[in-house]
Each structure stands twice: as structure tokens, then as C-alpha cells.
Design a protein around this nucleic acid. Structure first.
Length: 757
DNA sequence: ATCGGCCCACCC
DNA sequence: AAACGGGTGGGCCGAT
């Protein structure tokens, strides 16, 4: 190691000359890392050091030296500004960070990106994040939540066969804004620039041989966009939201009242616990002592100077009284115990009873038990959406349950709890968009999850643009259908999409030609121009075909289709057969993708993104079955060892899962890859940049707020919104067009003052 | 008290 | 005995 602590202009010069040498070398790349203080609110975290370096040299910039005081170090960072005192540092390093001339390598670089952009107004791109690449490499095999696998130290051990010191965690948390750096800290900070370089070389070899370089590039290029989105946040109109929540709360109490009218006769009123609990206890305890009369016999029985005969008499009298007292005591004890048991039960359970009836409506178990006591509903098994809607027309109580559920969900998941996430510094929501939250390459989102906000416009309208700004919402039109068509090359689908025909109607007509012809009414839009029409029967047939078109990409079975369309399994199977017969090419492709996944234990999307599957083995299946047999008390195999038949069945079902998941990965993964590509800092084949180059916050042209799988939401200044909208649209089209070439790619969108869709 | 499994509901 | 892909969140409930 050769760490150099940079504290002045001369140090910066030395660093710049080193970075220049790196930039002009054969493999221009260096390790990048930062240290910050620890804060609850990430927008309050401040940079203490910036490190760059590789094997031969490492530079640790101590920003305290440039800020001069801890107060400045704290106060002169943040809000994407470059304060005067940091200009020498920023000017020195910017040409290397804010360019694609040198690759920046580090572990968890989204954090570095965020800290550098928020605290210094310094934008870093052209990255290689060892964490992101590692996730790409192991997708499907290693759970993202697994401990002991994704840390820098674990990668170093895997790739470099080096164990990092146990001290590193302590050291990482040791940085603050005021204490002079110790030699130990400087050394630790510089190691973190060097080790990722080594990991990078290993990862590059693996990615090359496993053909994962393209996915790695897409993910690495997406990091700055994801970092921006985190810092930009999403503005929630607090007042509008609260108004909506109040409304839903009122409706909910009304729904609870209606529930009571149905359930009170069944389960009765909830009774308050006995108020005389203390009294009961005292009564019970008091009976432990002998009463006056009993005591006197007792004393007499023990006195001297009495004949044995007399003593026996007193004893008998005492015993009789004692027996009587103990019986009373036992009764009082039971009464007290029951009352206190009820009281504790009620303390816990009663709170959960929302209405007057003695039942917790939010408990599916209690609800289903109560429903079973109602005439006609004896055989109801669960209370989920599907079951309720099937029986709704016959049983008004089920409508009440549905209403209760919908407002209950609204209040609990989309209520005041969301407001707690508003950041005091910006007044906005800064959710965590986890770049690789799903094994297929899709993102996940937390705190709060902005990907599950109800589509109901009343909710979406609460997400607004700042004053003097507008909001754009863009999404791919029929993304999955186009990917399926491209990947399979189905001529019918290709023709339909190329002519902008309604694919679900086209398939419907192919599947049930004679029914379709018979159902044609006057002025049918399908007959006129292959568009979605209003003929009632056409609509019905189309909806069936649509269910299958989407469902098959998920590995739909007859049973599933029957449930979804509420038809018999035979009819569902017949429909599926019809579908396969009418879509031979796509049908064959779907099976092929599944078979390929089963045979190779991996699946690829159109960008080469890989999902791995653990190979089902006899031993593994046996383990699972054995564990299940131990677990499920109601199973008829409870407690028994795993039978051969069970294990075989498990093997079969696991293989079927791989087929479904592998098949779906191709579609879902391509969707994710294209969306990330479109928002990232990469360039297309002709050198045209993707959206980050337009939306980088220092340009103040567009601010990415949310990304929901195939939909992008951003804000722009009023005068920029039209341009930004067009640029984003173009980026999205170019991105998906890289993978979808046989059919056109289209993007829908809106510009408004709030989130639309 | 706390945790994990399960059900249910919301999204694409 | 049991499968329609990928997620998060909230509540209940039994086990620890």
C-alpha cells in the first residue's frame, strides 16, 4: 500500500497527475470510495473523505482540510451545490469522475454517486459497481437478503482469496467530521480503492465467459439514474392525501357498522371483562385463611388437658368446616381465574375488534369461521377476493366484507403511515428503489413502496410536481406482448403489431373463428380496421384470449385459467388447446423456453440477462418434503418420513416451476433491461445518449421521481417539459428497439401537474 | 415481547 | 395432495 493524504493544492496536483496517467493508460480505471459521518437522514450525511487509487498509489482527500472547520464541513455541503472551499477539490477530480474516459470501480457505488452529487454537486458516471455486477452474476442462486455473501469482504474472499481484517466494520463507522484522521483510518480508506479493482478483474473474466457483460453494462449505467431518483424524491401533496385518508376512514367506520349488522347475530356482542376482578381475587385469597369458628375448633383440638375423645370431636368439626371452606375457595379460584383469563384475552383480542360484534374482522380465520355459521355458506373455505366475488351476488354479507376489506386496506397501507416517510429536509418522499430487487432484473421499492400505489386517480393525483414544474408519465405500450413476439418470431403476432392491430382481438378471432364471425355486429371496429370493437360477444371472446395471452407468459395452467375466468377446468383446457393450435409458433417458443430452462438450469432475456436455477436433486427434494411433513399438522403425511411418491412429485413440480419462471424471465427481464437502459447514462449504437445525460440534476431539465417496471415519472420546469417528454420518449423507444426489432415500439404518456395513469 | 409463516391486497 | 411470473406491506397467530 502507498496511501497519500491530500490536504492542499499540492496534494491535489499530485493526485491529478496520477489520475492523468491512469486515464491515458491501456486500461483506464481506478477505485473510488468515500467516507461519511453516520446520520439517520441520508440527506444529512456529509462527506469526510474521497479516495481514489489502484494497486500502486492511493489518494485520500481529507475534505476537512479544505473546509477548515467541522462547522464548514457540515454546513457547506448539501443541496447539490459546490461551495467555494471545495472548488479546488471538485475542479481537480471532476474531469475524471464526470466523464466516460476512466472507469470508476467500487462496491455499492450508488452511495458514492449520491454523496458526491448531493454534497458537492459532483456527478460521477461510467461506473463498475462490484455489488451490482455480483448480483447480476448470481441472480437466482443467491437470495439478495442472504447475509455473509454480498459484502465487500465476501467478494474479496471469493475473488482474491484474501480475508479482510475484522476491523473493517469498526473502521467504516469510525469516521466523523471533526477528529483528525488516524493513520489507521487513512490506510483503511485507501484499501477500499484497491480491493475493488482486484474484484473487478475477476468479475470481468466471469462476465466475459458467462456472456454477462451487456447486462453488467446496463446495470452499471443505470446507477446514476437510480441515485438521482433517490435524491430527487417524489412530492406527495400532504393535504390532498390527508383529505383522501379521512374520506376513506369515514367510509371504513361505516363499513364496519354494516359488518356488525351481519355478524352480531352470529357471534354476539363483545363483552367487557368483569370489572370486579380485584374483588374476585381478594375473595379467593381470603378463603385461604381459616374462619373464626374453624379456627376455634382447630385451637381447641390442639389444647392440652382434653381427652382423646374430645380432641377427636373438635378435629372432626374443624375438618368439616375446612372442607367446606376449601370447596368455596376452589370455586372462587376458578371464577377468578376464568375472569382474569378472559380479561387478558380481551385485552389483546378486544382491541382488534373494530365493531360491536365479538369478532376480529381483520382475521381471515375468525371471519371464515363466522361465515360458515351462516345459512348457505357452510362450505366456504377462504375469504379471498376470488371467492368473495364468485358468491357476492347471492350473499350480501360478502359484499360487506369486500367493502370492509377495500377501505381497511386503504386506511392501513395507504393512510397516514405514508406521510411518516416525508423527509423533513425536502418535504418529499425518498423511497429506496432497489435496483436489483427481483431475480428477473426488475426493481423493488420500499419505504414507501411507490410501485404499489393504487391506480385510482384520486391517489395518483396526490403525487404532484413542484410549483413552476410539470410532471410527465411515460410507459411502454404493450411491452410484454412485443417482447414475446420478437423473441418467438410469431408471424401472426408480428403482422398484427406491424399493422397496429389489436392483438387480443386478432388472437380471439383466430381461436374461435366461427363464433367470432357469428357475433359480428354492424359497424364492428375489428372488421373495419382490426381494432378493439364494442360487439358484446366479441368483447367477451377477446377478454378470454387476453387472459391467455398474458397468462401463458406466466405459465398459466387450465386450473388457473378456470379460476380466473370462473369456468370449468374442462372448458379452460379446451380454450388453451384452441389457443395453442391457433398460435403454433408462439406456442412452440414458450415450450422451448421452458424446456431450455429445465435442461440448462438457466434462462436468458433478450439482453443476455441471466437467471440461474438450482438443479432439483432427489436429496434436496427429500429434504423439503421431510421438512413439510414435520411442519403441516393437517397434512395426512404429518410426522411420516418422505415417501418416494412425494419426492417424485416434488421433483416434477420443481421442474415445472423452472419452466414457468424461465419462460417468464425472458419477458420480464427484457422489460427491465430496456427500461433501465433507457434511463441510464449509456449510449446507443449510434452514440446517442440515453436519458440520464438529459436528466442529470445539474442541468435542471428533468428530475426522475419514480420508475415502475415499464413506466417512468419525472418533473421538469414548465418551459422544459415538452422537450423533456420528447427526449424521454425517444430514449425509451431506442432502448427497447435495441432488443425488439421485428415490431414497432411505442410509448404512451401524459404531461400534467401530477402523476397520471 | 419478538419473530416468522400465512393470508390478503396492492402494483406491473 | 397442492403452483400463474415478479415484488412490498399490513395484520393475525402461533412458536420462541
Amino acid at each position: 500500500m502507498n496511501p497519500f493524504l491530500v490536504v492542499d493544492g499540492a496534494g491535489l496536483d499530485k493526485m491529478v497527475s496520477y489520475l492523468t496517467r491512469v486515464a491515458t493508460s491501456a486500461q483506464p480505471a481506478f477505485g473510488l470510495d468515500t467516507e461519511t459521518d453516520i446520520q439517520e437522514n441520508f440527506l444529512e450525511q456529509r462527506l469526510r473523505t474521497i479516495q481514489v487509487g489502484a494497486k500502486e498509489e492511493q489518494y485520500v482527500i481529507d475534505l476537512l482540510a479544505f473546509a477548515e472547520t467541522p462547522e464548514n464541513l457540515k454546513g457547506l455541503q448539501g443541496f447539490r451545490k459546490t461551495s467555494k472551499c471545495f472548488e479546488p477539490v471538485v475542479n481537480a477530480i471532476r474531469p475524471f469522475l464526470d466523464s466516460n474516459s476512466v472507469l470508476k470501480i467500487g462496491h455499492g457505488l450508488q452511495f458514492e454517486y449520491e454523496m458526491l452529487s448531493w454534497n458537492l454537486g459532483l456527478y460521477t458516471w461510467h461506473l463498475w459497481c462490484t455489488l451490482v455486477v455480483e448480483r447480476v452474476r448470481w441472480a437466482g442462486l443467491q437470495p439478495f437478503k442472504r447475509k455473509g455473501f454480498w459484502g465487500m469482504e465476501h467478494l474479496v474472499e471469493r475473488y482474491l482469496k484474501v480475508r479482510m481484517s475484522e476491523e473493517s466494520e469498526r473502521l467504516q463507522k469510525s469516521f466523523d467530521l471533526c477528529t483528525p484522521l488516524t493513520d489507521e483510518q487513512v490506510l483503511y480508506a485507501s484499501i477500499d480503492t484497491r480491493l475493488p479493482m482486484g474484484v473487478y478483474h475477476g468479475q470481468k473474466l466471469v462476465c466475459t465467459s458467462d456472456r454477462l457483460l451487456e447486462t453488467a453494462q446496463i446495470e452499471n449505467d443505470y446507477i446514476p439514474a437510480n441515485g438521482d431518483m433517490h435524491i430527487n424524491g417524489f412530492k406527495l401533496d400532504r393535504d390532498a392525501w390527508m383529505k383522501l385518508v379521512d374520506e376513506q376512514t369515514t367510509r371504513h367506520t361505516e363499513h364496519v357498522r354494516v359488518m356488525d349488522t351481519f355478524f352480531l347475530p352470529i357471534v354476539g356482542k363483545k363483552n367487557m371483562p368483569a370489572e370486579n376482578l380485584l374483588e374476585l381475587e381478594q375473595k379467593w385469597r381470603a378463603l385461604s385463611d381459616r374462619g373464626e369458628e374453624e379456627m376455634s375448633y382447630h385451637v381447641m383440638a390442639k389444647q392440652y388437658g382434653q381427652t382423646p375423645q374430645e380432641k377427636k370431636e373438635w378435629r372432626l368439626k374443624r375438618d368439616a368446616l375446612e372442607d367446606k371452606r376449601l370447596l368455596l375457595k376452589k370455586q372462587a379460584g376458578e371464577e377468578y381465574k376464568a375472569a382474569s383469563k378472559y380479561a387478558t384475552w380481551f385485552k389483546k383480542e378486544g382491541d382488534k375488534m373494530e365493531g360491536e360484534a365479538c369478532i376480529v374482522y381483520a382475521s381471515p380465520a375468525q371471519l371464515v369461521a363466522a361465515l360458515q355459521k351462516m345459512p348457505g355458506l357452510e362450505k366456504i373455505e377462504d375469504t379471498n377476493d376470488k371467492t368473495l366475488s364468485k358468491l357476492r351476488s347471492e350473499f350480501p354479507v360478502l359484499v360487506a366484507v369486500e367493502n370492509y376489506r377495500s377501505t381497511g386496506k386503504a386506511v392501513s397501507s395507504f393512510g397516514e403511515n405514508i406521510l411518516e416517510f416525508i423527509n423533513p429536509i425536502t418535504g418529499r418522499l425518498h423511497s429506496r428503489h432497489d435496483q436489483l430487487g427481483a431475480v428477473t432484473g426488475r426493481m423493488a421499492c420500499q419505504k414507501p413502496n411507490l410501485m404499489q400505489i393504487p391506480v385510482d386517480p384520486r391517489y395518483r393525483e396526490c403525487f404532484v410536481a413542484e410549483r413552476l414544474r410539470k410532471m410527465a408519465t411515460l410507459d411502454y405500450d404493450g411491452c410484454e406482448v412485443r417482447i414475446m413476439t420478437e423473441a418467438s418470431g410469431d408471424p401472426v403476432w408480428t403482422e398484427a403489431l406491424n399493422n397496429n392491430w389489436d392483438i387480443h382481438s386478432v388472437v380471439a378471432e383466430k381461436m374461435r373463428t366461427s363464433d367470432w364471425v357469428k357475433a359480428t355486429l354492424e359497424a364492428c371496429a375489428f372488421v373495419a380496421r382490426h381494432a378493439k370493437c364494442d360487439c358484446p360477444e366479441h368483447k367477451h371472446i377477446r377478454s378470454e384470449s387476453k387472459s391467455i395471452n398474458f397468462g401463458l407468459a406466466y405459465g398459466l395452467t387450465a386450473k388457473g385459467l378456470a379460476d380466473q375466468l370462473n369456468i370449468t377446468e374442462e372448458r379452460a383446457q379446451a380454450l388453451l388447446n384452441l389457443w395453442h393450435a391457433s398460435n403454433p409458433v408462439l406456442s412452440a417458443a414458450l415450450t422451448l423456453w421452458g424446456d431450455l430452462a429445465k435442461a440448462t438450469c438457466e434462462a436468458r432475456d433478450l439482453a443476455g440477462r441471466r437467471r440461474l436455477f438450482r438443479k432439483p436433486s432427489w436429496e434436496w427434494c427429500k429434504e423439503i418434503v421431510t421438512a413439510n411433513n414435520k411442519k403441516y399438522k393437517d397434512s395426512r403425511n404429518y410426522g411420516k418420513p418422505a415417501s418416494e411418491g412425494q419426492i417424485k412429485w416434488k421433483m416434477k413440480s420443481m421442474m415445472e416451476s423452472i419452466a414457468r419462471e424461465g419462460c417468464n424471465h425472458k419477458i420480464q427481464g427484457t422489460n427491465a433491461s430496456a427500461t433501465k437502459l433507457s434511463m441510464g447514462c449509456g449510449f446507443d449504437e449510434s452514440g446517442k445518449p440515453f436519458f440520464w445525460h438529459y436528466s442529470r440534476p445539474d442541468k435542471e431539465q428533468a428530475f426522475l421521481c419514480n420508475l415502475v417496471h415499464d413506466e417512468a415519472v419525472f418533473e421538469s420546469p414548465d418551459e422544459k417539459i415538452t422537450e423533456a417528454y420528447e427526449v424521454a420518449k425517444d430514449c425509451m423507444i431506442r432502448a427497447l428497439s435495441r432488443y425488439v426489432k421485428k415490431v414497432p415500439v411505442t410509448v404512451d404518456g401524459h404531461v400534467d401537474t401530477h402523476w397520471v395513469k
